[in-house]
């Protein structure tokens, strides 16, 4: 496998250093990495999840709105950032892989490097204040 673009490698280096949960996908939406703080919310270590395609991870955490309606993948901020190549944000509920439910807020942006090469997208997310 060819090495990732340098912008993606640097994103992971940054994610490794931050206490903020971060989720990184490649240009086709393949999950490449999430950091340790993200593992706390998603409920599973990245080593155990491994690389997932967009169709898998976008449903895996069963995203729902406040009324409990399933959010289709195309309405998720990270998928939006991938498809439209623009920053996107939103709040919704997820079910973590250890069985807990969390309301999270997500800000996602496309990773567009020099010469405007599109290399993937990155999502920063956090639990809503007061959410247990």
């Amino acid at each position: 496998m060819a090495a990732h673009d340098i912008e993606v490698i640097l994103s992971r280096q940054l994610a490794d250093c931050l206490s903020l949960p971060i989720f990184i996908v490649g240009p086709k939406g393949t999950l490449l990495f999430y950091n340790e703080p993200a593992e706390q919310i998603l409920g599973k270590r990245f080593e155990h999840t491994g690389v997932l395609e967009v169709d898998e991870w976008s449903k895996l955490f069963r995203p729902q709105d406040d009324k409990g309606n399933t959010i289709p993948p195309e309405n998720l901020p990270l998928v939006n950032a991938l498809n439209k190549r623009k920053p996107a944000a939103g709040s919704f509920w997820i079910n973590s892989l250890d069985g807990k439910s969390h309301k999270i807020t997500v800000t996602a942006y496309p990773i567009i490097g020099r010469a405007r090469k599109f290399s993937g997208a990155l999502a920063i997310f956090w639990k809503e204040e007061g959410e247990v």
Binding site: Q13, C17, F33
Partner: peptide, 19 residues
Amino acid sequence: PIMGSMEMFDDDDWLSGFD
């Protein structure tokens, strides 16, 4: 190749300059 650490990521595809 890795900032602020002596440990490089385990996977080669995360290593700057690998190819």
